[in-house]
Amino acid sequence: MVQTRDVGQLWAAQPTYIISQVVYCLAGLVTLFHAFRKGGRWPYFWLGTVLHGLFTDNFWHFVLPEYDNFWHSQTPIILLGARLPLHIIFLYPAFIYHAAYAVSKLRLPRYAEPFAVGLVTVLVDIPYDIVAVKFVHWTWHDTDPNIYDRHYWVPWNSYYFHATFAASFFFFFHQSRRWFAPKIEQWTSATKSVEWKSLIISSLLGMPGGVLMFVPLYHPLHDVFKIHSEVTFFLLFAIFGAIVINGILSEREKTKEKLTAIDYVLLLQLAVHYAIYWLFVVFFDPEKERSLGLHEPVGPCNEVASLVTPFGQTLYKRKYFCPDDYDEGYFDFSCVGGRKPQNGATWYVICGTPFENRAEYITVISTIIIVAAGVFYGLYFKTLRQEPTQSKKIKTK
């Protein structure tokens, strides 16, 4: 269940991956400490994001292996048959907790808040998704139709996934508590039994709720009408955005809660998150990174596996990785002299590839950071209600 690897060897092979892991473990601890300092429902929410992430990330390759479509590089501590790196446990609170706490400053109407959390979660995720895959921190299935359409080697459905699953988890976390304790304020804790019921419900229903949001948009448009996943994501983005904008423009009370020292620590951790991916694309070389470990099983190139869509269509993908015919340009086998893994291999070396245009990656990540800086600055510093100042009366004769 739990395996360990030599840190020195892993650092020599993938220094950016070790740095990323440390940052996520620290993010988990910072968000946990923040949750306990804030009190109320925040500690339950933090734990809920962890349980939601564990269920979401591991359900597919254990329960529905035909939907198994990504493989992490190895880490100093890795669990569940080398499928779950330790830092991934903290990734979901690093994403969703940050998003939820920042959005809570807006005091949005109930109907808009889950969608805002979904969008901000994507904003936190996107530099990680773009940069980490380029540095072979994990690999994607080559021919899975659900992740075939890419953006800098990131499936467009990865962004769709983070938006919908975060929104779904947030919705069930609060909605389920309203079933049991409807009169208590949103972030005020009820009894322990009520909070644990709510936590378990949201942890279990967050993933199915996210899956259901693929049904009305993505599956008919992509599977039936063959529309690119980029279009379906931006359609989702437009719907989420329209709902959030309406919520922002509605009459609502501004927050009275001033920022505390622990809030600034949380913001500092978020800044580090964005900074490391900018530093990776500026100063590190992906072609120097190599990943030895569990990867997509290698097998005959002509064997296929089937996937059944919610509308009854049958889609196909290769059952095995075909090292002689694949289109995952972020890795190759150059660092091992071009030696490709043989049929039956699951444990082998892959090698990072050079940037086709480093300046483009720098520009993209810089743009994301500018947007994130503006969004989080607004959420943290422009949402506080300003107390009216009393003007001095000028005496007149």
Rank of each mutant, 00 (worst) to 15 (best):
C25P: 02
T188E: 14
H162S: 12
L86N: 08
Q9M: 02
Y160C: 01
W196D: 11
G81M: 00
G206H: 12
F90I: 02
R41D: 06
G40M: 09
G53N: 12
G329K: 03
C335I: 03
P220C: 02
V103D: 08
S366E: 08
T191P: 07
Q14Y: 00
I200D: 13
L379S: 03
H61N: 11
T232F: 06
I88M: 03
S193R: 14
I19N: 05
F70R: 08
M1P: 07
S203N: 02
V308R: 10
Y44A: 12
H151W: 11
F172D: 01
T56P: 09
M1S: 05
S193Y: 12
S250D: 06
P300M: 01
T314Q: 15
V298Y: 02
I130G: 09
R41G: 07
F55M: 11
H137K: 01
D125K: 13
V265D: 04
H72F: 01
L259H: 01
V7W: 06
L259M: 07
T191C: 11
G312M: 14
V131M: 11
K134M: 10
G329I: 03
E185Q: 06
V281Y: 01
L212E: 05
A345V: 00
E387W: 09
A99T: 06
V124G: 01
L279Q: 05
L236C: 03
E356K: 13
V265C: 11
N146Q: 09
H219V: 04
V131F: 04
V304P: 04
W156P: 09
G206I: 03
I368V: 11
A116L: 13
E356T: 14
S306C: 01
R5K: 08
T16N: 05
C25M: 10
S20F: 05
Q175S: 09
L212Q: 04
T367P: 00
C335V: 00
V336C: 00
L106S: 14
S250H: 13
Q175W: 11
Q313F: 06
A190T: 15
H137M: 04
T314Y: 15
V281H: 05
V282M: 09
F376E: 07
F333V: 00
A94I: 15
Y111R: 15
P310D: 13
Q342S: 03
G28R: 13
A167S: 14
